[in-house]
Design a protein around this nucleic acid. Sequence first.
DNA 1: TTGTAGGCGTTATCAT
DNA 2: ATGATAACGCCTACAA
Lengths: 338, 338
Amino acid sequence: MSRKRRGIGRVTQATVAQLAGVSSMTVSRYFNQPERVNEEHRARIAAAVAQTGYVPNLAAGGLASARGRIVAMVVPNISGPIFAPTLQAFSAALEAEGYQVLLASSYFDEQKEEHAVRAFLGWAPAALVLTSRFHSAATESMLAAAQVPLVETWDYCPERAPVQVGFSHRAVGEQGAAYLHARGYRRATFVLNSATGDHSALERCEGFCQAFEALGGQAGRYVPGVELAPFDAGKAALLALMQASSPPQAVFFANDNLAAGGLLAAARAGISVPGQCAILGFGDYPFAQMLLPSLSSIRPPAQAIGEQAARWVLEEIAGRASGQPARLECEVVGRESA
Amino acid sequence: MSRKRRGIGRVTQATVAQLAGVSSMTVSRYFNQPERVNEEHRARIAAAVAQTGYVPNLAAGGLASARGRIVAMVVPNISGPIFAPTLQAFSAALEAEGYQVLLASSYFDEQKEEHAVRAFLGWAPAALVLTSRFHSAATESMLAAAQVPLVETWDYCPERAPVQVGFSHRAVGEQGAAYLHARGYRRATFVLNSATGDHSALERCEGFCQAFEALGGQAGRYVPGVELAPFDAGKAALLALMQASSPPQAVFFANDNLAAGGLLAAARAGISVPGQCAILGFGDYPFAQMLLPSLSSIRPPAQAIGEQAARWVLEEIAGRASGQPARLECEVVGRESA
DNA sequence: TTGTAGGCGTTATCAT
DNA sequence: ATGATAACGCCTACAA
C-alpha cells in the first residue's frame, strides 16, 4: 500500500456532494437529519452514495461534533460464559442507538484493566463501563481526570461515587449459606477461585462463612493453588476436602468451572453427589444443566445488568442523568447436585 | 467571533504544549518518536502530561495521519466458547502493537454481519477480519468498494480472493468419517446445527456423508427444528434417531452444544454411550472434558487462526504483504463417548 | 532538534 | 431548505 499523499482517492462527503450537485453540508444532513433535506436532493444523494459506496467517516464526525459515538467496556473475560449475557444485552442496546462498543478483557488483573482504560480513553468514549469496584490507583486517577461518565457493574456498593449496576457478592454468599443450611447441611466449605484478583469471590466467601456460622453451621474455606486451571483446581479441591478426617457435607465453589471439576472428581472417585457431598456453584453457566448430576448454582442477573447499564449510559449521554445505582438480585437454581 | 466554542475545557496537545513551553508538534513527537525530542523537553512534557492527565485523542490522530489504529472483526458469537481462543490470540497480538480491536457478533446471520461491516467501515479500519466465506451481496460490494485489507477466517478456500486463514470444513467431515469408521461404526448420522445460516456445518455434513459412504458405511443426516436451543435440539435429535427402526451406531453432531444434549438425553433414557450409540462433537468446547462420559470431539485450531490472522494483518499494514492463505488442521480428540 | 502552515473528513454556526 | 466558513485535535511536509 503506497499511500504517499494523504486521503488520496478516498471517497468523502465532498465526492458525494459534487456528484449530487449539492454542498457537503447537505450530504451531512442527509445522514443525520434526513427529514430536513429536500426530497429531490435526497434521491440524488442516495444515488451518489450507492454509486460511490460512500461510508461516512465516524472518527471525523466524532471529532467535529465532540460527541464520539463510542462506548467502552472492560470485563474480566470477554469469552467467558458469565459475562456473555451482559455483553450481548449491552451491545445490542447501544448498537441500536448507533454506538460502537469497544471491548477488552482484564482477566482479573488490575494492570491489564489499567492498560485497557488508558487505551480506551484515547478514543474519547461517550461512557466507560467497568466490572467490579476494584481498580488500580492509576486507573482511579485517570478516570478522575477524564470527564467520562462511568458505570461499575457486577457489584453493588452505593457508597461509591461511580454508579453501580449489580448485586452484592456478600449477599450471594449469604444466599448460598441459607440454601445449604435449609437443605440440612451443617458442615460446608467454600472453595475460592484459583485466579487471584477475583476480589468478588472473596466477598462471596466471607458472606457465606459468616452467614453459615450465624445459622449454627460450621464453615470452612479452601484456597486452590494458583497454578491450576479452574476445572483442575476444582477437582483437586474436592478430593483434598473429602480426604480430611471430617469432610464437609457440602461444598460451595466460587464459580461453575470449579464446581464442574469437583463434580467430576467426585463421580470418578465414587463419591455420591449430593449424598456424600453436595455441590453448589456460582454463575449458572450454560453447561450446569448438561452435567450429571446437574449442577445447582446461583444465577447472577447477567442480562439485566447489561440492560440497566445500557439504559444508564444512554440517559447519561442524553443529558437526563437519573444516575441512580441499581441493585439487582441473584437467584439460587436448585438442581440435582445440592 | 462566536465564543461558544465546541471543545472548551478539554485537555489537548496544545494545553500540554503551552504548559511545557514547547510547540504542539513537539508534544506530538514526544508520543510518536520520543527519541527525537530533547531530553529536557521530554521531562517537561512528561510533567505537563502527568499534571493534566492528558491522553492523546486517537480519533484525531488517525484522521490526521490517514492511518487509523483500528482493526475490526466479526465472529458468529463473541461470547461462545469456540471463537474465544481466536479472539484472545488476535486481540493480544494487535493490542500489543497499539491497535484497537472492534468486535461484533453476527449470530450466523448475514444481515447482522452486513450491519456490523457497515458500522465498522465508518471507522476506516486498518483491516477487517470476517468469519467464513459466506456473506450477503451487499456486504461483498461494500467490501469491494472500501479498499480495506480483508481476511476470512475459519474457512479455507484458496480460490477466493480474500486471504483465508482456517481449515476445510469438508475435511473435518471426512476426519469424522474416518475416525468413526475406524472405530467400527458402520451406520452413522450427522446432526446439523439448529441455527440456520451455519453454512460451515452443512459442509462438514456433506464431507462426512460422502466420505463415510465411500468407506462403505451408511450415512444419514438429521435436521433439528430451528426453534430449539442447541442443547435441546441435541436431546431431541438423539431420542428421535434412537427410536427409528434401524438406529445409528454413531451420531456426529455439528457442534458440542448439540452433542452435550445428545449425551445427556442418552444417559437419561438409559442408552449406553458409546455402547449403544457413540457420540462425536465438533469444537472441543471446554466442557467436553467435564461430561460423563467425556465427549469425543474435533478440535479446531482456534488459537492458531487468531495468531495467523493477526500476523497477516500486521504484515499487510506494514506494507510487506506476504498474503498467502494459511491452511490449518483440526484434530480428533478421542475421549469416552466415541 | 524544533516550529509553522495546512489539511484530514466531518459538523456547528450563522447567514441566506 | 441550503450553503459558506470555521473549528474539532492531531499529524505530514517543509522550513529554520
